[in-house]
Design a protein around this nucleic acid. Structure first.
Lengths: 255, 255
DNA sequence: CAGTGGTCTAGACCACTGA
DNA sequence: CAGTGGTCTAGACCACTGA
């Protein structure tokens, strides 16, 4: 059913995760199917139960499997929606929607941060920031207007890179070893002003989604503030929400 | 630092989760602080390391702690945003925004499901559904217009309940033992038509956020389809996105 | 009752970081 | 190098479900 290589550099529990992921994604395991019991699987794979459970834990929290105490563990009825949460670059986002992505740079310059921007980036007011404004195209048509602010200090010599052809996130990762891992977003509904409408090729006052995002690296430092206007007629946001059970503060008096 | 009761019904690892949660929430542990090493903590609490790690795993995935291999485990710089993800009822949502919530029922009736609605609820077309339309008020002012569709079959005798005063979700949980755990949402930007604008007390064509949601129980069955129009001038959506690392399919040939 | 998942132990060895 | 987190083992006993 699943094969593991005990001498691989990849931990066993991750190999098991991958194995189930593929079985479920390929349809070999269907929603509602029970997987073998933990003890049986352990014996078959010649591994310890705690190791197996580490894999199943992740699969459960990612919504692929559902454990039922006293019964078995089952494949979840919810089909896999890749990256429905997590965050993506515009390019990845378009790719996931089966569209091709490209960019037109409108502005690309160094600026002094206004106080509101500085606050979002957690840098002193009037510090230097890199400002990048791009029209993002999907299948050659304007889809979004994106305005990015980066702390200049974190990304020296960034003006060597041309973001009409290069991915911003890829550049941050590959050239600056900067890995964004968490982002805080607000989503609003607005009407476009004349300049914005023109860049997006729609009429003034057309509705749009305004997404403001602060992106942070693994240490919690702000690496980017970006706000993006998406054409309401061509873009919607999709996301999955899960009830959090980490905080079932039901108290110790339960049972 | 943290106290546990080995004889409590609440598992030790959850007690430790709670302990750190409170220490961080209360400010006793500040962002960037290192927590004691796992071995030290185990000795102090007289527990096994795997048990401690179960707690820290959850704290890390909930964004409260950050492990650094070779160093220590640190309190995350990102402050706790309660329920920023996960989903909330309108009442909880308003409470988290420090506003009081109330409702005005506009329609509450049985209907035959149109095909589009039936598809979202995964029931046969023309099946019976309960339709509930409410204006949701925050601090007595209209904030949102909510239209809920429930499969009648799942909730017999639901018309005994009055949802101008009762919470829908609480009723589903307490009266029908139905626990929604996952929801799929799309978010769009629209302009209100005349009827909607009137109910929300704004002028025609005002911008609004349209959120469509399918809510599912733990088995993946649809229990609710709801679409909600939020006044753009009074409501924005806040959410946190994390890069998913469960699927770092970097392959076993790494390193 | 037999079988399932849930929790926990007391070790082991590895890979990584900074001094 | 000593100290940290990362992975893994081979057991144990508990709580729950359905027959």
């Amino acid at each position: 059913m699943i094969k593991i290589d005990k001498h691989s550099d990849r931990p066993i529990y991750k190999q098991i995760y991958d194995g189930f992921f593929e079985l479920i994604e390929s349809g070999a395991l269907k929603p509602g199917d029970a997987i073998p019991s933990e003890r049986d699987l352990c014996e078959e794979l010649k591994i310890s139960r705690m190791t197996l459970r580490a894999a199943i834990n992740q699969l459960e929290r990612d919504g692929l499997l559902i454990r039922k105490h006293g019964l078995n563990t089952f494949v979840s009825a919810t089909r896999i929606v890749k990256n429905a949460l997590g965050f993506m670059s515009f390019s990845q986002d378009m790719y996931s929607r089966s569209m091709s992505a490209s960019s037109k740079v409108i502005r690309y310059e160094e600026r002094k941060a206004e106080e509101s921007i500085a606050a979002k980036l957690s840098i002193p007011a009037h510090s230097s920031v890199v400002y990048l404004e791009r029209v993002r195209l999907a299948n050659q048509e304007p889809m979004a207007l994106e305005r990015v602010y980066l702390p200049t200090q974190l990304f020296p010599e960034i003006f060597n890179f041309d973001f009409s052809t290069h991915s911003l996130y890829e550049t941050l990762e590959k050239e600056y070893n900067c890995y964004p891992v968490i982002a805080e977003e607000t989503i609003e509904s607005v009407n476009l002003n004349q300049a914005e409408a023109e860049l997006l090729g729609v009429t003034e006052k057309s509705p749009a989604l305004l997404v403001k995002r602060i992106t942070r690296d693994e240490n919690g430092n702000s690496v980017e503030y970006v706000n993006t206007l998406y054409r309401a007629d061509r873009y919607r946001i999709f996301l999955i929400r899960r009830r959090q059970h980490g905080k079932d503060h039901s108290g110790s008096s339960e049972k």
